[in-house]
Amino acid sequence: MAKAHIELTINGQPVEALVEPRTLLIHFIREQQNLTGAHIGCDTSHCGACTVDLDGMSVKSCTTFAIQANGSSITTVEGMAAADGTLSALQEGFRMMHGLQCGYCTPGMIMRSHRLLQENPNPTEEEIRFGIAGNLCRCTGYQNIVKAIQYAAAKINGVPFQEAAE
């Protein structure tokens, strides 16, 4: 099958490429663009490790073709920190609250949380749990991921973070 020409924006940078129509977005990002933050965990759109932000949506890039993203704007975890290297509130929150262990789900988890907080800047714990239910973590049991997102929400909203009593 003929390769197709696509143009899109990744982390603010314009990108042009030739892709086979069947090239999965995750492989395009990881192998052609060398952005290896997003991962493949399940192959079947259940684990969310491949989550990237595409035109304001959290998308599972293992179940999307690169060619579908033609003309889109994509943000990956590599685009989250500031240009000077300062971590985003979410990245900082994940570290401060021990919201990760092996780190494999983390890029997808951060990208999903990013969109969640864009849509709901002050989520309840229940809303956070529901909002990240498309992302599996095998290490943390989610409790500290919830705290990490609460930490980030507080930081973004400019209010002091208070851990809920257990």
Binding site: L35, A38, V77, L100, G103, T106
Partner: peptide, 10 residues
């Protein structure tokens, strides 16, 4: 470890 993992640099 988290410095690299949170930035997709594992």
């Amino acid at each position: 470890e988290d410095i690299r993992f949170t930035q997709g640099k594992g």
